[in-house]
Design a protein around this nucleic acid. Structure first.
Length: 614
RNA sequence: GGCCUCAUAGUUCAACGGAUAGAAUAGAAGUUUCCUAAACUUUAGAUCCAGGUUCGAUUCCUGGUGAGGCUACCA
């Protein structure tokens, strides 16, 4: 058998067939599966078949079995250049030709690793979903980066993706900011103060809290019990009154609400733009908070829910090991759960091709989403089988949780600015950008600063909590975003030199007769570093799939790091442009270019940009 | 109390049930007349504890210990 086109059937599938074949003929046994893994670096070989699991079916010495299989494979498959057996591991050596042909097959692909959507499977990814009374902070950054990246990864894995968020724009917390502004604002606006809108509104939320506490303290001082004072402080009562007015549609209150929300949205937009995230559709809680009540009626009819004597509606999940959960209050008003049920339905109504949803929400809401998904399943919606809570750990500071009261909240805009400044300081010290304009420099610093931040957060498994120490700023060296960006820039430098130094030098595409690059092989032998790079390039598409299945940008980040580390080692050991042999030089330039493309592609999945120079 | 996560070098992170547990950083020692030294090379250093399942366990199960979270007719 000859693997003329590795795209059609990957080597592992072919090996599986052949191993089953030899085992059947030599031992008369039908193997259900064959287990493969990449050969560890310390051993000779490229792909390893594990013999141990076969011992359940074949009685015998694993080394002997490995040898029998190895001999057969080497004889039958042209690409197997050799093998060795160590303990129960059959290490197979693939020929250079196999890897060179693989490179030929991907050389002309513009978007290697990207699976195009057939439009059938659409998924909606929700992320960000902030409150409108406070500016975005470090926690939101993790949420945004994760949600955005998972959306991009799902898209690259072949799904149609809609990005959305639900904006928490109603409720008592908003009224608190509004009331404080009325009281103490003296007409301050973002224009008059030069403050970002979200910051301005956030200030009044803090101002409310301060004034409210003073009231409570005064009441306690006059002899009232604390619990009572906290409930009866005039400011709180007034805020509650404002909420009632808002719900009743009071023109003045609604108008103030609209004005202040508009300020906040403008501020958020700036932060989103700076972070480089976007949304296809926005949902507002002020519009969706009443949805879901109709479904409750339906669920009652179906017997999914039941009504208690006081009129409140519940679902009993004790059989699933959970509790009873309320879905409608006794006064008939909606709770959080009701809202989320309604919002989910609305989304499917708006986008009928949705077959699943991803909710990017912190792990403190694990229970809420378990319940929500169970309810939707019980209500019998087909798409409810594909709901996923992208749950992530908190971002903690060395002193514990971020607390606005103690002023330990790490503001998103401030953090981005700091990262940019650090990038600028390092860059200026290195002094490689004298010919850049000020504007170009600023863009680059932003790209690098954000690259450092995003990579720092995304390389960690989402479900783990992150400890963020603002004192020890995010690294720019080692396993970091800038390290990868730097490697990309170096590759671009090689490509520039290759084209300019050699005039008509062909860096890109060869003209295979059928347009698939199956013409002459560029080289006949590989340097070991080249082979390692090709192995890594080969697993990029499956890495994208794996990351999509596990909703984990960390898998992409780690892959990219491995690839870049390998490239740097290659770059150090092997001369690319200095190579005398034309065909080898051209191959190395093309290989470097391909590595660069995959870096750019992988980083795009993480929402990180790459520079041509740095 | 009940339920859910997490626990790996000094620190921050990896490891479909597979070989001698990989990196980065901090530490020690090297590499620029050579494609960008934000780089490369060498070196030392870790699986919370006790059982169990398995040919094989960081990974799965049970029980501890430690950290965090949830446990509202709040969102």
């Amino acid at each position: 058998m000859h693997l003329r086109n590795p795209e059609d059937m990957n080597i592992q599938d072919v090996l599986t067939i052949k191993v089953k074949e030899v085992v059947a003929s030599a031992y008369g046994v039908d193997l259900p599966t064959v287990e493969f893994q990449p050969t560890r670096k310390d051993f000779e070989g490229d792909i390893t078949a594990v013999i141990f699991p076969m011992l359940r079916y074949i009685k015998g010495n694993p080394e002997q079995i490995g040898k029998t299989i190895g001999e057969y494979l080497q004889d039958q498959i042209e690409e197997i250049a050799g093998f060795n057996v160590i303990k129960g591991f059959l290490n197979l050596l693939l020929s250079d030709t196999y890897y060179i042909e693989f490179f030929n097959s991907i050389r002309d692909s513009e978007d290697y690793g990207y699976f195009h959507s057939d439009g059938k499977e659409a998924v909606m990814v929700e992320y960000s979903s902030p409150n409108t009374n406070k500016p975005l902070h470090l926690g939101h950054i993790r949420n945004n980066l994760l949600g955005y990246s998972v959306a991009e990864i799902l898209r690259a894995s072949g799904k149609k993706v809609y990005k959305t968020q639900i904006i928490n724009d109603r409720g008592i917390h908003i009224c608190k900011s509004m009331l404080a502004w009325q009281r103490f604002g003296e007409g301050e606006t973002p224009e008059s103060s030069g403050l970002k809108g979200d910051k301005l509104v956030g200030n009044y939320y803090v101002a409310f809290d301060k004034a409210y506490k003073e009231e409570v303290d005064a009441l306690v001082a006059s002899g009232q019990p604390k619990a009572e004072a906290e409930k009866e402080a005039p400011l709180l009562l007034e805020a509650q009154d404002m909420l009632r007015k808002w719900e009743a549609g009071d023109a003045a209150v609604v108008s103030l609400w609209e004005t202040m929300n508009k300020w906040v949205y403008k501020g958020f937009e700036e932060t989103y733009a700076s972070l480089g995230v976007d949304f296809d559709k926005l949902y507002y809680e002020s519009i969706t908070y009443l949805l879901g009540k109709a479904v409750v009626d339906e669920g009652l009819k179906k017997g999914v829910f039941y009504k208690k004597e006081d009129g409140s509606v519940w679902i009993d999940l004790t059989e699933e090991g959970l509790d009873e959960k309320i879905v409608l209050r006794s006064d008939g008003t909606a709770v959080y759960m009701t809202q989320d049920i309604g919002t989910a339905l609305q989304r499917v109504k708006d986008f009928p091709d949705i077959d699943g949803m991803v909710y990017t929400v912190g792990n403190e809401q694990d229970y809420h989403f378990r319940v929500l998904f169970l309810i939707l399943k019980k209500l019998g919606f087909s798409w409810a089988r594909h709901l996923f809570h992208l749950s992530y750990g908190m971002v903690d500071l060395p002193g514990g949780k971020m607390k606005s009261r103690e002023g330990t909240v790490v503001d998103a805009d401030d953090l981005i600015a700091e990262m940019t400044q650090t990038a600028a300081a390092i860059s200026e010290e290195l002094g490689k950008l004298e010919d850049f304009s000020e504007k170009e420099k600023q863009e680059l610093y932003h790209m690098i600063g954000l690259g450092a931040l995003k990579y720092y957060i995304l390389k960690v498994d989402p479900k783990k909590r992150i400890l963020f120490d603002p004192e020890e700023s995010v690294d720019f060296q080692g396993n970091t975003g800038p390290f990868i960006q730097y490697t990309y820039a170096r590759i671009q430098s090689i490509l520039r030199k290759a084209t300019s130094d050699m005039g008509s030098f062909n860096t890109g595409h060869s003209a295979g007769a059928d347009g698939r690059g199956k013409g002459e092989l560029p080289v006949s032998e590989l340097h070991s570093k080249e082979k390692e790079l090709l192995k890594l390039l080969q697993v990029y598409p499956e890495t994208v799939q794996l990351a999509a299945e596990s909703y984990s940008p960390a898998i992409i980040a780690n892959y990219t790091y491995d690839l870049v580390k390998e490239f740097n080692s290659f770059y150090q050991q092997v001369s690319i442009l200095g190579e005398n042999e034309d065909s080898v030089r051209m191959f190395r330039v093309q290989l470097s270019g391909k590595v660069g493309e995959v870096i750019r592609s992988a980083f795009r999945l993480l929402g990180i940009e790459v520079p041509d120079r740095m």
